[in-house]
Amino acid sequence: MEQTRLDDYLRVIELCRDVESSSANPFDVDITEKLLILKERLPELKLLDELLVDSEAILELSRIIRLQDQYLKGRASALYIDPLLIQLKLKLLPKEALSEAFIKSWHPVAQVDQLSPRGLERAFIYWRDLTPISERFKDKFGNYGIGPGVVEYSDLINLGVFTREQFESSLAELHEELLHESNGEWVDYRQFIGDESFESKVRRAYLLAFLISEGRALLKTEPLTGKIWITALAEKVKGMPKSVAISITGEG
């Protein structure tokens, strides 16, 4: 019985949420009609939970009104172009022309990302006051910290960093990316592992080490310039692997 009373409310909430999470026209929701339905049903509601559902429906309707407002502003702005027309135009344009259009309308931000004397001072104070790692987690783990060592693939699985499936699919994805990027040529190793974040760099470097060990990618170094190059192989190769140590830092 309670469910029947609330059916209209739930339908309104669901409709609003569908419109909010898609590119549908917000004017597809007839606000007046929905408000009349809610008004008609309101006297039947007795319990607090039911009244909360009513207020939720009103909240969703108000969100739709906000979307309608944005929709009208968008249509009225000079940026509005029929979506089908723009899709067609975008399909016609080669990548080079798209990026050229972007560059010609682009005003990059000018900013310097560097250490200042004040920043250095703060870093020094932080470092001076930082408790040694062996002491920091003593209370929590009851033991001394251990020195650096080798993390095996099985360790990562045991630690829950990867599941076996995730690891395999991440390897396949990275291999595909390298295949596209290198296209038979050598690509810069450091550029390929990226500069997004230290974590992401380490993750990509770790996966890349597996691809190289498995013979699905090749790596070469230029001792004079310090450059490291990689390329992907479509098929695995067999040979005597050599070990190369590469340091990854948190710098860009």
Binding site: S21, S22, S23, L67, Q70, Y71, G74, R75, L79, Y80, I81, D82, P83, L85, I86, Q87, L90, K95, E96, L98, S99, A101, F102, I103
Partner: peptide, 29 residues
């Protein structure tokens, strides 16, 4: 170039859809 082309196409696509579009729709396009 590829990265900029993705961004240019995405901005144009979002603008044509009143400044909001589902990510899956952008990806599909």
């Amino acid at each position: 170039i590829d990265d900029l082309a993705v961004l240019a196409a995405t901005i144009a696509f979002i603008n044509s859809k009143q400044s909001r579009v589902a990510r899956r729709e952008v990806e599909q396009f």
